[in-house]
Design a protein around this nucleic acid. Sequence first.
DNA 1: CGTCAGGTTGACGCGGGTCAAAATGAGTGG
DNA 2: CCACTCATTTTGACCCGCGTCAACCTGACG
Lengths: 241, 241
Amino acid sequence: MIDRHLTRLRARHPVSAAEEQAIRDLFTDTRAVRARATLVREDERLTHSLLLLDGLACRYRHLKDGSRHAVELSVPGDFTDLHGFSLKRLDHSISAISDVTVAVAPHERLRALTEEHPRLTRLYWFSTNLDAAIHRERAVSLAGRDAVARTGALFLEMGERLRVVGLANAAGYDLPMTQVDLGECLGLTPVHVNRVLRSLREEGLMRFQRGRVELLDPARLRAAADWDGGYLYLEPAREPI
Amino acid sequence: MIDRHLTRLRARHPVSAAEEQAIRDLFTDTRAVRARATLVREDERLTHSLLLLDGLACRYRHLKDGSRHAVELSVPGDFTDLHGFSLKRLDHSISAISDVTVAVAPHERLRALTEEHPRLTRLYWFSTNLDAAIHRERAVSLAGRDAVARTGALFLEMGERLRVVGLANAAGYDLPMTQVDLGECLGLTPVHVNRVLRSLREEGLMRFQRGRVELLDPARLRAAADWDGGYLYLEPAREPI
DNA sequence: CGTCAGGTTGACGCGGGTCAAAATGAGTGG
DNA sequence: CCACTCATTTTGACCCGCGTCAACCTGACG
């Protein structure tokens, strides 16, 4: 059930059998949630964190004008709100983009983990630091890349993150999002997302249609997007955490 | 020496005398670094983290065209690179904006802290989660606020963060940055930063001159910038961490 | 075969980038 | 105290990427 989560962790650090058991023991039950439903509401008191098992979720904030901006996407194997464990309330909401299933990790169990398993604590600390690195990349993208490069960079990132958990290959991957959703991630209007996708398609770089991403020419796409996945920290760790 | 750091921590969570001592024991020595010098280089192997005691520092990334984008500012009392403790290398560089002094916390001491002080570990985990919240705010700002609102939001945030450590009051605060620096934080050209500052000044909202920020009308500025400091988590914690 | 969400395209306007030049001011040496 | 330099700030003219508005198309589903 949480195998993708373990795969994700092990892509960066070794996890022993005993540690694996401690991780499995974090979770009480699983829940299925419908597409578009809210998983966590901004400012709500939190007593547990959610591990995304299947589907796509996003963290988003509302702006004054009623629009919303997505600050991060979660893929299977990611905690959607591990940061909620120490923050106790979130500065954003979390919603399901597609139908999702999540596993519930009560904060008292996470707390017990921090008391008894310092190494796993560092590992999960790393995990939220990785989230922050992804946030930084998004900020750099928004500040410095034009719409085409920004969009390319997002698709490349999602490809890498999904590949890690076996949900993408060289050909591409499924991404059950609409162009409106993409716009909220990219800080673009749906209309302009459409134009950007057309341009990427016509350049032969990539295609996004009916929830399917095809990376037609990853090398050129990387160059065009000025994208380097170093911030995903996917190299094997050279030293113990 | 690290009093501002303790003040910052205590603004959000209680810290006992014993814990304070454990924190003091993290640091070996202090260093003075000149304005514009690099504190940490992207991808360098890290063996220690730096606590900013005095001055202003920033994390920045280079873009293909040679420009750079600042992803976060550090104020006295902040660790500039606590996330480096678990990441072991950074996806960005860190440089001093003004002359700064930093205290050095070797990673082996931080590691020992995680082994012996679970509560302090959670507290520092919180601290990097707070960094991430600030990153999210920056991304939302870049995606959804125009140049004037974005600039206002940045000055309001810096005001709050500096106020926490006693470096700002109702009148304003010192911020030793140039308009070029501001542009790198805001994703704007220096030319446009200048126009924005003029507009804020002419509206009677705030003034920024020669490294001094005056918040002339904070309430109206907050409204104009659609800014709410909730993401800084400055309310007293309602439950133990 | 009607409805509705999502996708597509075109015309037009504006916020902020670009380019260029001048003003200001802090520091430095004579 | 002045002359000179160099970073920084300021302003104006012009341009372009992306937003806005509006219309139409497509396909899934009842």
